[in-house]
Design a protein around this nucleic acid. Structure first.
Lengths: 188, 188
DNA sequence: GTTGACAAACTAATAACATTAGTTTATATT
DNA sequence: AATATAAACTAATGTTATTAGTTTGTCAAC
């Protein structure tokens, strides 16, 4: 019996490669080598490299979405918001390659990607409900939170800052600051 | 007389390529074609592709730094902070490829990159002086602002959100929210 | 059990890329 | 005018992704 090479197995190996060696290091040659087949044989399972990259992005988004949901279960308000933000950052810390795959999907308008993204957004909208923001304002806030997460991801990757001031703390303070700003604006 | 191919000319053409066709499209082959020389001749001017990418990142950072400084001249406090944030976003909007080059520098710990980065940071520290934050707190705030900028850059590139709510507005609201949060925290 | 179909492997070949080595040529300096 | 040097060139190599065409293994129907 041959070794079963499934779509799942391919994604699995791809995930390991990007997380361990970086997004750029995911080549069909390397992938084939790990799977112990010749490069062109991969085309029986994927349609091309970009296709694989998109699937990897979906794969990543699914995991991230799951982790985010988990982190918010049983929490509300500020606490839930901050939890979600930290979960996002934590995910990228543990899965740098996957996070990259998400941000660098060749086709970000891909149907499946959009679907999961909007799931995440509607969950965030629910968390924001107690604040009674206008729908438009809520969207602004959600985008701000996402921007903070993605931005810290970028900063972390580039590294090289003053380590007397740990990045962890900055992340925590930044979320607190943003959330406080949101609440203060409401009370006016 | 031959056409003069200077380091500056190479950076110039590289900049055009990345801004018009995307960061990935900067290849030595394409660069050589535009400059009307053969690919290997480029090695008389640069040491390799990664070297060029690093230089492009420096080039980008210099421009960004300049624009940011300009935007803050004659302004103070909240107004200055928001100006700087918007200038950052504006720069990336006008120079998507260059902004990418900045974020994807092969060697982010590069000496020159660090130098310009720390210049920007010390300028931001000066802008924050009137608030009398602790040095540590100021660093957190600066990182938060940078994260917001970089994050919105990422979001803008990926596009595909509800355009009933313009991204411009979200950016503005996010900066306001963050700055308000900072001030509120102080007053306690 | 043999046959036949299909999936999934293979080999061979091509085109785009970065990079190195070795050679020629043009310009500027002595 | 002679020569040194910078900067172009050609030729070659190794790594990619990708396509076409072929073989082979497995499973189901007969």
């Amino acid at each position: 019996m041959r070794e079963k090479i499934t779509r799942q197995a391919i994604l699995q190996v791809s995930e390991e490669i990007v997380n361990q060696e970086g997004y750029e290091s995911l080549t069909l040659a390397k992938l084939a080598k790990v799977l112990k087949i010749k490069t062109p044989s991969l085309y029986n399972h994927i349609s091309n490299l970009n296709d694989l990259r998109n699937e990897l992005a979906v794969h990543a988004l699914k995991q991230l979405s799951h982790q985010i949901m988990m982190s918010a279960v049983g929490k509300a308000g500020d606490v839930a918001l901050k939890s979600i933000g930290l979960a996002d950052i934590h995910f990228m810390s543990e899965n740098p390659g996957l996070y990259d795959a998400m941000l660098r999907a060749p086709d970000p308008q891909n149907e499946e990607i959009e679907k999961i993204s909007s799931e995440i957004i509607s969950m965030l909208l629910r968390v924001l409900e107690p604040y009674h923001l206008s729908e438009e304002h809520a969207i602004h806030i959600i985008r701000g939170l996402r921007a903070l997460s993605h931005g810290f991801n970028t900063l972390e990757r580039r590294g090289g800052f003053n380590m007397n001031v740990p990045l962890e703390d900055s992340i925590s303070v930044a979320f607190d600051t943003f959330i406080k700003g949101m609440i203060t604006t409401l009370k006016k």
